[in-house]
């Protein structure tokens, strides 16, 4: 296998006396379907926030495609090929899905400082936005105000917007959290239909989704990686069961 698309080396994050990320060295292989799991407060989102540049690490390094991005700004990392979704919807609420997708596409193509250009000056981008909307089952609401969309549709848009940046690495932070049963199937299909060349890191609570989707699992507890391996091995791992799964069975 070629070099990992994303890796961290001894990543450390302290909040005062609290060690939220404890020397985590993590590797995401190209084309991976990797899940990061752990109980509440394990530091999963803190870890993702460092990967994407929302938080500054206290120590260690982050490499994207072999480039050191430890201190890069969030938007620079997006341009280098890493994009993410948020655990709690972070959408442009007054826009339409079409506009939000056009925004991401425009930024990807470096058009953000084109003050005098029309939004549809690049017809190919409008078409691409429409195609992405269709792929993520948003074509029926493409012109509605985002704030008025159902929660499930908003979750789909979360992923669609991250996907539109044409990332090499896609970080999905609890994509299915809170989605009502009726809309859940759509969402799960969307996640499993992501193209193979995109490397995906899934941060999730939902074991159903994790074991259905991931070919590799990393377990984070109290900021420390306690186990990593294939799903079957993780499910059988006694340390994981003790520290994390507790009494629950892994394939619940």
């Amino acid at each position: 296998m070629s070099a990992p698309v994303l890796e961290t080396l001894d990543l450390v994050k302290r909040f005062g006396g609290l060690l939220a990320t404890n020397s985590v060295s993590f590797t995401l292989e190209r084309g991976a379907r990797h899940a990061l799991i752990g109980p509440n407060g394990a530091g999963k989102t803190t870890f993702v926030n460092q990967l994407t540049g929302v938080l500054k690490p206290s120590g260690g390094a982050i490499r994207l495609e072999g480039r050191d991005v430890t201190h890069s700004r969030p938007e620079a990392r997006v341009r280098l090929g890493m994009s993410r979704t948020f655990q709690i919807n972070q959408l442009f609420r007054t826009m339409t899905p079409l506009e939000m997708l056009l925004l991401v596409l425009g930024e990807r193509e470096g058009r953000g400082l084109h003050l005098w250009s029309r939004l549809d000056a690049r017809a190919d981008l409008v078409r691409e936005a429409a195609a992405i909307a269709e792929r993520f089952r948003l074509d029926d609401v493409i012109g509605e105000t985002i704030a008025t969309l159902s929660y499930g549709k908003q979750r789909q848009l979360e992923i669609a917007a991250a996907f539109a940046a044409r990332p090499k690495v896609l970080l999905l932070d609890e994509p299915a959290a809170g989605v009502p049963e009726a809309e859940r199937q759509d969402l799960l299909n969307i996640v499993s239909e992501l193209p193979a060349e995109v490397s995906v890191l899934l941060i999730e609570h939902d074991m159903d989704l994790v074991f259905r989707f991931a070919t590799r699992i990393t377990v984070l507890v109290n900021g420390t990686v306690i186990a990593e391996g294939e799903p079957a091995a993780i499910a059988a791992d006694p340390t994981v069961r003790a520290a994390y799964l507790g009494g629950e069975s892994g394939d619940a």
């Binding site: 938007e75 972070q90 007054t94 930024e107 917007a161």
Partner: peptide
């Protein structure tokens, strides 16, 4: 014209949600 451009769209993105704007590749400060 400018507010209808990709630039104008990025401003609305910043107004609506700064976190998402920068996660979408928008250089907010610039």
């Amino acid at each position: 014209r400018m507010m209808g451009s990709p630039f104008g769209l990025s401003l609305r993105a910043i107004r609506d949600n700064r976190l998402r704007a920068s996660a979408s590749g928008v250089g907010v400060n610039g």
